[in-house]
Design a protein around this nucleic acid. Structure first.
Lengths: 143, 143
DNA sequence: CATAATGTTGGAGTGTACCCAAATTTTTTG
DNA sequence: CAAAAAATTTGGGTACACTCCAACATTATG
């Protein structure tokens, strides 16, 4: 699979996908809505969009979950976020600032670039090296 | 002055402002349109928008030019582009790739972050250090 | 000064993102 | 287990960014 550029999902949808991966199970519309601070109807519509592109399986009134494709994609999204955040912490930004800054533009950085940056950094085990504490990269903080 | 976050201008408008600074004189609608590959009417409308925010002075049928505020802002835009491009070249991306990649997300990187990155890099004289050849950062290539 | 070139207006379309009110479905509970 | 409560979806709108086309206005030029 893994045939994507990393630019196929809009900024906001990235948030949905990341949240869904974090939950790793069937999630309810309300959970997403309160996490992302949007009206439930907005969530329903966005979910329909993600579903139409094969990222999630959405059973009306019952819940959503990532498809295999969605899971793979979401993993890339998290990885991209982590790599970019780590990168910025090397340039004088705190973990929090990096995380916040990155969440604003990450959706526009290609998988290609991320792979090169990641390789150049020696494929850091970001969430293990401690450079980007989990706590500072929790989702939902970037609203 | 310099009281801006760097996030006030949308991606596309950044292109207009950068082009206007490059020209550094009264520019015609057609010049902009052919540079950015958009219909002249699109240019006219975008110019109206930039003018309403004080970045340019637009005299209908006669031309546009940056205001002092616009010039200052555009200088930041160029600086941001250069700093970010330079940064990416440090991570395995070629000058061309960096330039192209950066043009996709630069509009979402704050002045604050740029200042920190720039300081952390020792305030490089980007266009002089040769790391980002002028030729590879010409505007209009990012379409 | 008439025609060509240039520029602007008005109208319209796409895509993203969002909300509200009303209708529907599921869940709870008396 | 039916009625009320909670959750979800639909339908209808708003708003912003960006864009094009056709028609109209202005400016430049032969």
């Amino acid at each position: 699979m893994e045939c994507f550029t990393g630019l196929e999902v809009s900024p906001r949808k990235v948030d949905y996908l990341k949240f869904l991966l974090k939950k790793d199970e069937t999630v309810r519309t309300t959970d997403i809505s309160s996490e992302l601070n949007v009206d439930p109807s907005t969530t329903t519509k966005t979910l329909g969009d993600l579903a139409s592109h094969g990222y999630v399986d959405h059973v009306p009134y019952r819940g959503v979950r990532l498809t295999e494709k969605g899971k793979e994609y979401a993993q890339f999204l998290i990885h991209r976020h982590n790599i970019l955040s780590l990168l910025l912490t090397h340039y004088g930004l705190s973990a929090e600032e990096s995380c916040h800054e990155v969440s604003r533009f990450e959706a526009y950085v290609s998988k290609d670039a991320i792979e090169k940056i990641c390789a150049s950094m020696g494929h850091p085990t970001v969430s293990v090296c401690g450079k980007i504490p989990h706590g500072s990269c929790k989702m939902g903080e970037h609203s």
